[in-house]
Amino acid sequence: MATPSAAPADRRSNAATRRRQREREIIDATRQLFDERGVRDAQIEDIAKAVGINRAIVYRHFTGKEELFALTLVQYLDELRVKLYEVTADTASESPRAQLTALVTAFADYGLEHPAFVDNALALMRRRGPDLMAEVSESAMFRLGRSIGGCLALLTGAIEAGVEAGDFHVEKPYLLANLLYASGLGTLQLARVGLLVAEAAPGIPQVSNVTTDDVREHMVISALALVSGPRAIDALKDPESKQS
């Protein structure tokens, strides 16, 4: 038989469990709408309806739409981290160059398979840090940072391994990992648009198609060029240095 002092603790524990369960239901419904309709067309009313609650209850669990969307991004990122971890394990005995190629390819494949992930990530990245932190609770920002950091740690580790082996020339691996993540999202958006714009003649635009294979290959080549350091950049500036 529970003691009187234990009963309130049990009720608090049960209430916390129910709250976490409801939060997961709301995030799962948001994720489903993202995947079906895209981030832009996902409305709080539709999310609440999918869970079988009214929108006021959604705001009891999240500070607002930005926080809900940030925690939905966490779900995507946690999936991505698992895939990147598997790639890291599978390529552990290979060269740093091969491992980085595999990681960037896995990131590209995940983004191409889950366009709502790209939309969601880019939507949050368009916000200034202080503005986002003013709208999202500290605990939600911690969860988001932990999920992004988990993905970037695997990429940073591959870059650091290349530096240690003398294959890569990078002063700040963690900075490059962040840049690859941000630029990769933009490049994946180009794959969604599927169009390239050039100038056929002065003032005359020319539009052509770009394939997902083109985008994936560009992401890998760009990453490998960046880890090669100044010597690769110098070679691009001076073709004769490629022969030295």
Results as ranks from 00 to 15, higher is better:
residue 212 T to H: 15
residue 212 T to P: 15
residue 212 T to F: 14
residue 212 T to C: 15
residue 212 T to Y: 15
residue 213 D to I: 08
residue 213 D to M: 10
residue 213 D to E: 14
residue 213 D to S: 03
residue 213 D to V: 04
residue 213 D to G: 07
residue 213 D to A: 12
residue 213 D to F: 08
residue 214 D to A: 13
residue 214 D to L: 09
residue 214 D to Y: 05
residue 214 D to C: 08
residue 214 D to W: 07
residue 214 D to K: 06
residue 215 V to D: 06
residue 215 V to W: 08
residue 215 V to H: 12
residue 215 V to N: 10
residue 216 R to I: 04
residue 216 R to S: 04
residue 216 R to K: 08
residue 216 R to Y: 02
residue 216 R to C: 00
residue 216 R to M: 11
residue 217 E to V: 06
residue 217 E to R: 12
residue 217 E to K: 14
residue 217 E to W: 06
residue 217 E to Q: 14
residue 217 E to P: 06
residue 217 E to S: 06
residue 218 H to T: 15
residue 218 H to M: 15
residue 219 M to H: 08
residue 219 M to L: 07
residue 220 V to P: 02
residue 220 V to A: 06
residue 220 V to N: 04
residue 220 V to T: 11
residue 220 V to E: 02
residue 220 V to K: 03
residue 220 V to H: 09
residue 221 I to K: 11
residue 221 I to T: 13
residue 221 I to E: 13
residue 221 I to V: 14
residue 221 I to L: 11
residue 221 I to D: 13
residue 222 S to W: 07
residue 222 S to F: 11
residue 222 S to P: 11
residue 222 S to E: 12
residue 222 S to Y: 11
residue 222 S to Q: 14
residue 223 A to I: 00
residue 223 A to R: 03
residue 223 A to H: 01
residue 223 A to P: 00
residue 223 A to N: 09
residue 223 A to K: 07
residue 224 L to P: 03
residue 224 L to E: 02
residue 224 L to M: 03
residue 224 L to F: 02
residue 225 A to F: 11
residue 225 A to I: 09
residue 225 A to M: 08
residue 225 A to L: 12
residue 225 A to N: 10
residue 225 A to S: 10
residue 225 A to P: 01
residue 226 L to I: 00
residue 226 L to V: 08
residue 226 L to M: 02
residue 226 L to W: 04
residue 226 L to A: 02
residue 226 L to E: 04
residue 227 V to L: 05
residue 227 V to F: 00
residue 227 V to R: 00
residue 228 S to D: 12
residue 228 S to F: 05
residue 228 S to A: 09
residue 228 S to P: 01
residue 228 S to C: 07
residue 228 S to K: 01
residue 228 S to M: 02
residue 228 S to Y: 03
residue 228 S to H: 05
residue 229 G to N: 00
residue 229 G to C: 02
residue 229 G to Q: 02
residue 229 G to A: 06
residue 229 G to H: 07
residue 229 G to K: 05
residue 229 G to V: 07
residue 230 P to Q: 01
residue 230 P to Y: 03
residue 230 P to I: 05
residue 230 P to D: 04
residue 231 R to Y: 03
residue 231 R to Q: 10
residue 231 R to I: 09
residue 231 R to L: 04
residue 231 R to A: 07
residue 231 R to K: 01
residue 231 R to T: 10
residue 232 A to K: 10
residue 232 A to M: 07
residue 232 A to P: 05
residue 232 A to G: 05
residue 232 A to V: 05
residue 232 A to E: 12
residue 233 I to S: 14
residue 233 I to W: 08
residue 234 D to F: 06
residue 234 D to S: 13
residue 235 A to R: 11
residue 235 A to S: 09
residue 235 A to Q: 05
residue 235 A to F: 03
residue 235 A to H: 09
residue 236 L to N: 13
residue 236 L to T: 13
residue 236 L to Q: 11
residue 236 L to F: 13
residue 236 L to W: 07
residue 236 L to C: 13
residue 237 K to T: 14
residue 237 K to Y: 15
residue 237 K to N: 15
residue 237 K to A: 15
residue 237 K to L: 15
residue 237 K to M: 14
residue 238 D to S: 09
residue 238 D to Y: 05
residue 238 D to W: 01
residue 238 D to F: 04
residue 238 D to L: 01
residue 238 D to V: 00
residue 238 D to K: 03
residue 238 D to G: 03
residue 238 D to E: 11
residue 239 P to Y: 02
residue 240 E to G: 13
residue 240 E to R: 09
residue 240 E to H: 05
residue 240 E to M: 06
residue 240 E to C: 04
residue 241 S to G: 12
residue 241 S to V: 09
residue 241 S to E: 15
